[in-house]
Design a protein around this nucleic acid. Sequence first.
DNA 1: CTCATCTGCAACAACAGAGTTGCACCAAGG
DNA 2: CCTTGGTGCAACTCTGTTGTTGCAGATGAG
Lengths: 111, 111
Amino acid sequence: MTSTTGTAQVVAVCAALGDATRWQVLTEVGRGEASASALADRLPVSRQAIAKHLAVLAEVGLVEPVRVGREVRYRAVGARLGLLARTLDAVGARWDERLAAIARLAEAADD
Amino acid sequence: MTSTTGTAQVVAVCAALGDATRWQVLTEVGRGEASASALADRLPVSRQAIAKHLAVLAEVGLVEPVRVGREVRYRAVGARLGLLARTLDAVGARWDERLAAIARLAEAADD
DNA sequence: CTCATCTGCAACAACAGAGTTGCACCAAGG
DNA sequence: CCTTGGTGCAACTCTGTTGTTGCAGATGAG
């Protein structure tokens, strides 16, 4: 198990986050554990559509199923989002650092 | 000017990052400024496909066009990625903090 | 036991997007 | 001037995804 996220997983998680309805489902789950049926009452889509979104979110670890009696509630996993955030930040920092290095070289060449 | 990213923009940027080919284009640009034609030589897709990906990336600010003579080179904007990372991290932290608060309540109820 | 409710599977329609090819246009260099 | 390499636009195909409806199966409540 790596502490850094592979590029394939980065793409997968971002793809999961890159849908307006799915983001709405995710944030709603973030407000508190909820089942697909409960979410269908609050959101303007059918229960099955929400179930599919939850399956996608669970696939990449952004959400976790919790069996409560006969219903399946889902809870948001903040750590997964935090891990992605750190990976993205590291990549972005590398780009900017590279540009800064080039800028330093150009400045040194002026002498 | 907000220091936090709106949900619509979060979804848009994540959607831009949620494609394997586009991520490949982005990381290649991150290695150094490059034009669509130059990228087409290194990647297994046509120049027009790359041009579309660059347009999507530029739309959300992950990449920036730089005119050099008659060619248009693109450079990766790490700050944009860093901003997204901070937004995602804040959201994830909120979820986990909420869960921790519930855990504290449950523990207090045990007394 | 019976009923209501929640879940899961499957088939289908509709839309979005990724990729291609082809052509026109512009600008630098011989 | 003319050629060459780069960009931009448009149309088309094709695959994947989103969302729907319908039905069957499980499971707790009365």
